[in-house]
Design a protein around this nucleic acid. Structure first.
Lengths: 193, 193
DNA sequence: CTACGATTTAAACGGTCGTTCAAACCTGTG
DNA sequence: CACAGGTTTGAACGACCGTTTAAATCGTAG
């Protein structure tokens, strides 16, 4: 098996453990055992535990930023852009690295790594707010504080990983659509008066 | 100083530490040092660390449930009820025990204590959904899955404690109103049409 | 002032966990 | 078959942390 495959396997196991127990609550041994390997072996692929957490964030933030840049360039209305991003975000959170992105406590990272994560997150936040601002300017959304609105939307989505049950009745697709309906709808309706 | 005061002092310090570092990341010593006491001293007031976490949850959930029962009995429209609850919830999260309520990882509790927290949380969830359902029946809210709508609203609010900066420009009051406007907003405007 | 209960301290204990390391193992090439 | 590089193991370490305990200290009623 290629070393890069092994690395992402570890990332998935780690992300799942971090989501269940938090960074400090999950043990390196727990991450390794889920893959039927010894914990010492993990150190052949990663420098240390923090490095694994950082890789989790980087992995999903890079996917997210790629998507953001794509969507920003599409010639569609702001509400459509938001909907697309929310759907993709929910899919990423639930189906890729289990609930990573902004969820896995990044404050556990040391300052230099933390700063790199924050920089990427900021780019994403700026993109979201630009879209929201554009929607307000175009009269699609009710006027308000784009920052608060973005925090509300991202909070709702990030929180999904706290209650999502893969064996439950809702698929990630259904959840994504429900959330997109509500979150974009709330931004929009007031302007319809 | 009365023993009960000392206990809530400890709860506040613990809640702040748990919010910053998570339950496993925060040390008992850290909680004690912030109050200029020794960690051994904490064990005069609490049986163990888990007991402190449980008390945090109980403290804020009890306040929340009291409020929920009050609001449910008021003779006002569903959107007004939601707005009231959101405002109070934001205030509780930001100004009382720093970001407790549903935020402080309850899954770190042992099964019996966890079950008690979940029972209280369930009562709150049922109240929220009953209000949302009523709002949909009355034509105040767009039809949809009340469960998803509740999850979205609670996620947005719970997430606030992840980004809130007490020394930032927004007061908890302003944040609460912004969130209430966005999350239940459409009802007010729709009624004006 | 004394005595007693409530409170606090400081040190020690076990246990867990992240990390290291030398040795063993595996796999494919010459 | 022998060798070499990459991979895995298992044990050991040192540090940290939750908890316990016995003794010290404090505050107050008599």
């Amino acid at each position: 098996m290629a070393a890069t495959d092994r690395r992402t396997e570890i990332l998935k196991s780690a992300a799942a453990a971090f989501r269940r127990r938090g960074y400090h609550g999950a043990s390196v041994d727990e991450i390794a055992s889920a893959l039927a390997m010894t914990k010492g072996n993990l150190y052949y692929y990663f420098r240390n535990k923090e490095d694994i957490l950082y890789a989790c964030h980087e992995y999903s933030l890079d996917i997210l930023l790629l998507l953001m840049r794509e969507v920003l360039d599409e010639p569609i209305a702001a509400d459509e852009k938001l909907r697309k991003l929310i759907l993709a975000f929910v899919h990423l959170i639930l189906d890729e690295l289990q609930g990573t992105a902004l969820t896995l406590d990044p404050e556990a990272l040391s300052p230099p790594l933390f700063a790199k994560v924050i920089a990427k997150r900021d780019e994403f936040d700026r993109g979201m707010r630009a879209i929201i601002q554009q929607g307000m300017d175009d009269g699609l959304f009710a006027k308000g504080d784009p920052k608060m609105m973005e925090f509300a939307m991202m909070g709702a989505v990030n929180w999904i990983s706290k209650w999502f049950d893969p064996s439950g009745p809702m698929t990630s697709q259904q959840i994504g659509e429900s959330f997109a309906d509500y979150l974009v709808g709330q931004a929009r309706v007031a302007a319809l008066k």
